[in-house]
Simulated assay, not measured.
Amino acid sequence: MSEQKYATYTGDQFLFFELKEVLKLKKENLEDRLIREKVKSENLFQYTSAASIARVLPPVIKRANLLDEKLIDMVLEEDTQTGKLINLYAMMKSNRLFFEFMDEVVREKYKYGQLYLEKKDINEFFDRKIEQSEEIASWSHSSIQKMKQVTIKSLYECGMVENIRSGDMNRINIQLSLKRHLVEIGDEKYLIAMGVSDI
């Protein structure tokens, strides 16, 4: 399998509510085309702008298609925190750069008990990636800045970062059934990136 290419995630955001809406439609066995039509025609995301819906639909559907039946059921039936961590897993799985941030920065923070995420940590990560990849180096400054904002906001929304301003972090509790399932399907690297050590 070839290595996943780098892609920006400026428009991805955390989008947990939107993911749940799409997963409900997937449970009705609707194809992606029909899901798009239904989300737009019934304004299921409750957005005021059609352009906003069009912008977030691709990443949400991409994430939804990465989840198997068990993970879909967990998002829809288990507690909100479990659903948010599955969404975070789907974000990592759908975007190489976001996964590398989690694996190289967040995992290290948990590993060494440094429970704070500073702007410096995020800036250094992106500076390093710009040096390592011509592709990333070609992206605009505004795109890089937007991804930095999406990164910290996503970690805040899933409960890893307690306070965006201070960067204080929380250790997360992952349900045992979720942990076991991700190991069973060979995706333990995403657990490790979330700071889970007892696998």
Rank of each mutant, 00 (worst) to 15 (best):
Q132I: 00
Q132C: 04
Q132M: 11
S133T: 14
S133N: 11
S133L: 14
S133H: 12
S133K: 13
S133M: 14
E134G: 13
E134F: 12
E135D: 14
E135V: 15
E135K: 15
E135P: 10
I136H: 08
I136C: 05
A137K: 15
A137I: 12
S138E: 07
S138L: 02
S138H: 01
W139I: 15
W139Q: 06
W139V: 15
W139K: 09
S140Y: 08
S140W: 02
I144V: 06
I144L: 09
I144F: 02
Q145S: 12
Q145A: 14
Q145L: 14
Q145M: 13
K146F: 07
M147V: 04
M147K: 03
K148Q: 13
K148Y: 05
K148F: 07
Q149N: 02
V150F: 05
T151R: 15
T151Q: 15
T151Y: 08
T151P: 15
I152N: 01
K153F: 05
K153D: 07
S154E: 03
S154P: 01
S154A: 14
L155V: 01
L155Y: 01
L155K: 02
Y156F: 09
Y156M: 00
E157A: 06
E157I: 00
E157M: 10
C158L: 05
C158D: 01
C158M: 12
C158K: 03
M160N: 02
M160P: 00
V161C: 06
V161E: 04
V161Q: 07
V161F: 03
E162D: 12
E162M: 13
E162F: 11
E162G: 09
N163G: 04
N163P: 03
R165Y: 09
R165H: 11
S166Y: 04
S166W: 02
S166N: 02
S166Q: 02
S166L: 11
S166A: 09
G167H: 00
G167W: 02
D168P: 04
D168V: 05
R171K: 13
R171V: 11
R171C: 02
R171G: 03
I172T: 04
I174N: 06
I174L: 14
I174Y: 07
Q175L: 09
Q175D: 06
L176W: 02
L176A: 10
L176C: 00
S177R: 08
S177C: 06
L178Y: 00
L178K: 01
L178A: 06
K179N: 08
K179Y: 01
R180C: 03
R180P: 00
R180S: 07
H181R: 05
H181T: 08
L182D: 01
V183C: 07
V183K: 03
E184F: 08
I185C: 09
I185M: 12
G186Q: 03
G186H: 05
D187V: 10
D187H: 13
D187S: 13
E188K: 14
E188S: 15
K189Q: 13
K189T: 04
K189Y: 05
K189M: 12
Y190I: 14
Y190D: 09
Y190L: 14
L191M: 10
L191S: 07
L191I: 07
I192F: 10
I192M: 09
I192D: 01
A193E: 05
A193C: 13
A193I: 13
M194S: 06
M194V: 00
M194D: 02
M194F: 06
G195Q: 08
G195D: 01
V196M: 14
S197A: 05
D198M: 10
I199A: 11
I199R: 10
I199Q: 10
